[in-house]
Design a binder for these strands. Structure first.
Lengths: 205, 205
DNA sequence: AAAAATCCTTATCTTTTGTTAACGTTTTGA
DNA sequence: TCAAAACGTTAACAAAAGATAAGGATTTTT
């Protein structure tokens, strides 16, 4: 993982994306970008590993990553993130405890990074503190809502229904992610997903 | 649901509990408590209903609540919260969209409430804004970590393993919550949970 | 370009879970 | 206090998912 200062074009993309949460003034943005660096990941390169404390939160400019755990020697994929989204071993990053899972590039990826210490510095900087707290709040609330939906789906839906939702609402995941990872993501085995797909071919709801 | 101004003793409990997230100065607390009211729920009384926009976030002083959805006419329990925890249809509260589930008192409950509009007022109040943004950020981050663990458990563990975790780590839930709700919470049917319990009786790991 | 690894499907068999229903027990509410 | 409702267990059967292995297609690596 290489770290470089970002160029103006990529920073503009980042600024646009963050407007989903907060809008920075020119002055604030000038201070903010001093803490941003770029990085890239080759396919299968790791962004986070079990046992490590996450030092960075990333913004995916291009490419994608997958989150996975290892259980009984087997990789189990829990999630994916694509360009335009944030990536981090959040719990580890936030609590400063060793992470319990891995994050790996699914496709070659370019990232913008902010380190934990830089983020703390911004949260303590008189001219940035308020806006950064707000940014942090809205970001966490946004992902909280996503997680809430995800948990609901595990409790109220069958694996087959979860797959159908994926087909109708998140086709991009299906197109960019190998099927055995999607199976884990749905909470089932690849073999079981293959059977569900076959069933749906002959009774497409 | 009745709303009353809170008495000093309960406010002190609240203040202690919130110190997990932020510490208010005397001045800040004085302003803060002006926006807090009390309420109580009889057993089975609803705090939130499907289709309603959540107007309040609550802090549970005593008692407990359960979160549930209705699917095909059946109640499916997704979560519980106990005294000392926050309660809200978060997504609805945060996004101002109709909620998709119900929240009901599992035991008779007393709550402290903050309305959405009062919270917005505090977020806009010059002397409170910063502290409230911080409070919101840390709260959301805290629950984000909880949700992350919960999702992991659905992907990496069998229902039986999830039940064993509950036995070893969250015995309080087992003691205060009827078993058929716990079954839903684990993502299985009550019959299946009964079978798992029987299995574990004869092979207690 | 050849060899190796990965991926998806399919088949078989086992295990688990879901479904429905019945039964006593406990709790609730009139 | 008494009837009704709710609760946990168990049984029997059906449906679904897990485990394992094999085969062919695709991709990756060397």
């Amino acid at each position: 993982m290489i770290k470089l200062p970002p160029d103006p074009a990529t920073l503009l993309v980042f600024r646009k994306a963050l407007e989903k949460f907060v809008t920075f003034s020119e002055e604030e943005w000038r201070l903010f970008v001093q803490h941003v660096s770029t990085s890239s990941l080759k396919k299968k390169e790791h962004f986070a590993r079990e046992g490590e404390i996450a030092s960075y939160i990333g913004f995916i400019l291009t490419g994608s990553v997958r989150y996975y755990h290892i259980k009984d020697g087997e990789e189990i994929t829990g999630y994916f993130s694509f360009d335009g989204e944030l990536v981090s071993s959040y719990k580890s990053f936030l609590t400063r405890q060793p992470g319990t899972g891995y994050i790996q590039a699914l496709e070659p990826a370019t990232l913008l990074l902010i380190s934990y210490h830089d983020l703390q510095n911004m949260l303590n900087h008189p001219l940035l503190a308020y806006k950064m707290e707000r940014f942090g709040r809205l970001t966490a609330e946004y992902y909280l809502c996503c997680y809430e939906e995800r948990i609901s789906s595990f409790i109220t839906q069958t694996p087959e229904e979860r797959y159908q939702d994926l087909v109708s609402k998140e086709r991009e995941i299906l197109q960019r992610v190998p099927q055995h990872y999607i199976a884990n993501f749905l909470g089932i085995t690849p073999v079981s997903l293959s059977r569900i797909r076959k069933r749906l071919l002959f009774q497409p709801s």
